[in-house]
């Protein structure tokens, strides 16, 4: 009779080589990346008009508003943005390369190598929640990096916030933040806390999580892949993957 141990051994090692190596295509499918114009062609009127969330403007693509619906692929765009693309500020029209890589402050660097994560949903569709929880599965296995999920904000160092902030969740989210000990960091996961995503402008919603909490990293994507969430968490700890 087979046992759990045999079953696990039979499947072998599943764990990602991230952050030692770049996120693979299996980990970050094309829709995990921001669209970029494929040729030198700037944004055409058709591409701007065809974007259902207004993420394409005359200056380029704003990743913090893109919901990866792929409509712009018909207008000469392709999903070719960087794999690790998170932002310090609420994303403006920074362009696909606007992710500030390298010298950004790492608020949790003093904590050394172990961090505890707490998930707060302020109005998501559940996809981002599941992508955050997927960090614990054997494919990503964040405990190998000293990251753990905790059940109380009082034990948490990083608040992972998913969803577009609704009026009803403003106060609970603030309380969760206040309950955390210093030093602490907030990572906004998904396009919804960046800009409202697909629901931008609906009644009862706040335009950005930055209006409610001091956010350290915004991770765009609808939803971002676990590797990208992991990258943002490591970045606030000063442990991001460096390009050799």
């Amino acid at each position: 009779m087979p046992s759990w141990i045999e079953q696990a051994a039979h499947r072998g090692i599943l764990t990602s080589r991230y952050p030692r190596e770049r996120g693979s295509d299996a980990e970050v499918p094309p829709t995990g990346r921001a669209p970029v114009p494929s040729a030198s062609a700037g944004p055409t009127g058709a591409a701007i008009a065809g974007c259902p969330v207004g993420a394409i403007g005359p200056e380029g693509v704003e990743p913090g508003r893109c919901i990866r619906c792929a409509r712009c692929l018909a207008h000469g765009y392709r999903f070719g943005g960087p794999v690790e693309a998170s932002f310090r500020a609420p994303p403006g029209r920074a362009g696909p390369e606007g992710a500030d890589v390298g010298d950004e402050p790492a608020p949790l660097a003093p904590l050394g190598r172990s961090l505890h994560l707490f998930l707060v949903d302020v109005g998501s569709c559940n996809a981002c929640n599941l992508e955050v929880l997927a960090l614990a599965n054997p494919f990503y296995d964040v405990s190998r990096l000293g990251l753990f999920f905790t059940n109380s904000p009082r034990h948490a160092d990083v608040l992972l916030v998913v969803g577009v902030p609704t009026d009803a969740m403003v106060e609970p989210a603030r309380r969760a933040y206040d309950a955390m000990p210093f030093p602490k960091a907030v990572v906004a996961v998904g396009v919804c806390p960046c800009s409202g995503g697909a629901f931008r402008g609906n009644p009862g919603l706040r335009p950005s999580l930055g209006d409610i909490l001091p956010v350290d990293r915004f991770v765009p994507g609808c939803p971002p892949t676990p590797v990208q969430i992991l990258d943002a968490v490591l970045r606030v700890a000063g442990r991001a993957r460096r390009e050799e």
Binding site: A26, P29, P30, T31, R68, C69, A70, A134
Partner: peptide, 23 residues
């Protein structure tokens, strides 16, 4: 999820069933 991404271009099938969705 990875199978879905491979067949439909998106891990959660967003846009995958609509005209002009991911490849």
């Amino acid at each position: 999820l990875r199978l879905q991404a491979r067949a439909f271009g998106h891990r959660w099938l967003f846009g995958a069933l609509l005209p002009g969705g991911p490849a």
